[in-house]
Structures are given as C-alpha cells and as structure tokens.
Simulated scan of single mutants.
Amino acid sequence: MRLASLGSGSKGNATLVQADDTLALIDCGFTVKETEQRLGRLGLSGADISAILITHEHGDHVRGAGALARKFGCPLYSSFGTAAAVRGRRAHFDGADWREVRPGRAFTVQALEVLPVMVPHDAREPCQYRFSWQGRVTGVLTDLGSVTPHVVQAYGDCDALVLECNHDRDLLAQGPYPLSLKRRVGGMLGHLSNEQAATLLAQANVDRLQHLVLSHLSEQNNTVDHARGAVEQVMTCGRERIRVASQGEGFDWLHVH
C-alpha cells in the first residue's frame, strides 16, 4: 500500500491511496486539467484511477470530480447527503456513475476495503475514509471541527495517517479573518487546530504509525513550525515519521510496509 497527495489546502485537495492495481482518489478539488498535470508528476494519468471518493460537497474537494469521473469512466462514491448537495448545485456531475456509501458500513473498491467515517463538519453529510489492505491501514482525516470518540476509535490504529492541522489557535485569533469566519473555522463544525490534532494523536497508537502527514494547513492561520511543534509533543520518539502536505506539491509517494 502507498499514499500520496496532489495538493492540500483551501485552494484544492486530492489524496491518493493505492494497493495492487487499485488506485483510489479521495476528493478532487482541482480542475481536470490541473488534476491531470499533478497526476503526471507522480507518473500517473486519469486512466489509472479506479474510483473517486468524495468526503463532502465544498468546492476545494469536488471542483473537478464530476468531469474527471465522466472523462475516464470511473465511479464516484459519497454519502447520500453529499451527493444531494453537489447535484443540487453543480450540473456537471450529471451523467457520472455515482454510488452511495453509508457511514460506518465498509465496502470494497477492488483490492481496498474502505470504511466511511462520519465527522463533525459544516456540510450536508460529511465523511472521511479509512483504507485497509492485507492487515495495513491508511487513514485520511481532514475537514472536521472536533475530535469525537467515534473518530478516535476509527483512526486510532493506523499505519499511515493524513491528519488535518488547519490552524494555530492564537494565529487564527490574531489573524485577518472576520470574526464570523474565525468562529466558523475554530468551531465544533469547522477545522482541526494543531492542538486538537495532537489531542487525537495522544489517544492513538502512535507507535504503529509509519507515516504521519499534517495536512490542510491554513496559509493565513498556521505555519509548518507551529503544526510540527504541536504534534511533536506527542510523537516524541517518531519525529522523523512526520511530513507536511503542501498546497502546491502535496506530498510524494509514501509506502506502507
């Protein structure tokens, strides 16, 4: 199993998880043209994608998903609520092979077993995904405003984890956002702060983690040093396993052994 990212942040998100010949694309927040360019950097094309899994309907996660699915004939998976929200606003999803997932009920995409996990976020029916293959587990967990016991249970035993570290609380409070947006981002249905991400890790089996990727960092309300500093207090013996996903480059392939 291996994982990579095409980019992570408020301008677009897309994560890849691969096992054998199965390649899952989690979200597609870039145009088709840009997605294909970013795939090319990893030696891939859209024809390699087995399925696109959508976490929620916000534009930085679905911008190119429908068009990419239609162009390459791969199915789209999401919750019913996400499908309803996207179809209600974006006609370019018409004609895509859309398949419903139910949070908490595992399904398979060829070689991968996928568990959709419901998360608290300001969207219609958001869920994140955990992937299993031959006893190895990769988790993708972004766009949630709080760490619930359910989330800890689902992501507490991963071999690789892509984890949101959206903002530093002090930088958000002192930053340029209007008060209403600060409350949304820092609220229970917003985005994880560095401190909240560290809280989740403190309850997880971090000794098992081969790779921890800090993702969805705000360009206005966070820095790499702030994010790493928060989680390194928990990953005291595994700092070399921590990486940061960027908006422009994402991150290159990481292999789960």
Rank of each mutant, 00 (worst) to 15 (best):
M1F: 00
A4M: 04
L6E: 04
G7N: 14
G9V: 12
A14N: 04
A14E: 08
A14G: 04
T15H: 09
D20T: 07
D21S: 11
L25N: 00
L25Q: 02
C28N: 07
V32R: 13
V32M: 11
V32N: 08
E34W: 10
Q37H: 14
Q37G: 14
Q37S: 13
R41C: 09
S45A: 03
I49R: 09
A51S: 01
I52V: 15
I54A: 11
E57L: 05
H58A: 03
G59S: 13
H61I: 12
G66C: 05
A67H: 05
L68Q: 01
R70E: 05
K71A: 14
C74Q: 01
P75K: 01
Y77R: 08
Y77H: 09
S78W: 13
S78V: 08
S79W: 01
S79C: 05
F80M: 11
A84V: 08
V86N: 01
G88A: 15
R89K: 15
H92I: 02
F93C: 04
F93E: 03
D94H: 11
G95H: 07
R99E: 10
V101D: 12
R102L: 07
F107K: 01
T108F: 09
T108C: 15
L112Q: 00
M118N: 09
M118V: 13
V119C: 10
P120R: 10
H121G: 11
D122S: 14
D122A: 15
A123Q: 01
A123P: 00
E125A: 04
E125S: 06
P126K: 06
Y129K: 05
Y129A: 03
R130A: 09
F131L: 00
W133Y: 12
W133V: 06
R136L: 06
L141D: 01
L141Q: 00
L144M: 09
G145H: 05
S146I: 08
S146P: 00
T148G: 02
P149K: 07
H150D: 11
V151D: 03
V151K: 05
V151H: 00
V152G: 05
V152K: 08
Q153T: 10
G156A: 11
G156K: 03
L163W: 02
E164R: 00
C165A: 15
H167Q: 06
D168E: 12
A173P: 10
Q174V: 12
G175A: 12
Y177L: 02
S180D: 15
R183T: 06
V185G: 00
V185Y: 03
G186P: 03
G187H: 08
M188L: 12
L192H: 00
A198W: 07
A198T: 04
T199K: 13
L201H: 06
Q203K: 11
A204I: 01
L209W: 03
H211R: 02
L212R: 01
L214G: 00
H216T: 07
E219T: 13
E219R: 15
A227V: 05
R228N: 08
R228T: 14
A230R: 02
Q233D: 10
Q233A: 14
V234K: 13
T236D: 13
C237Y: 14
G238R: 11
R241S: 04
R241L: 03
I242N: 06
R243A: 15
A245C: 07
Q247G: 14
Q247Y: 10
G248C: 08
E249A: 07
G250L: 08
F251Y: 07
W253Q: 05
L254K: 02
H255S: 07
V256D: 02
H257Q: 06
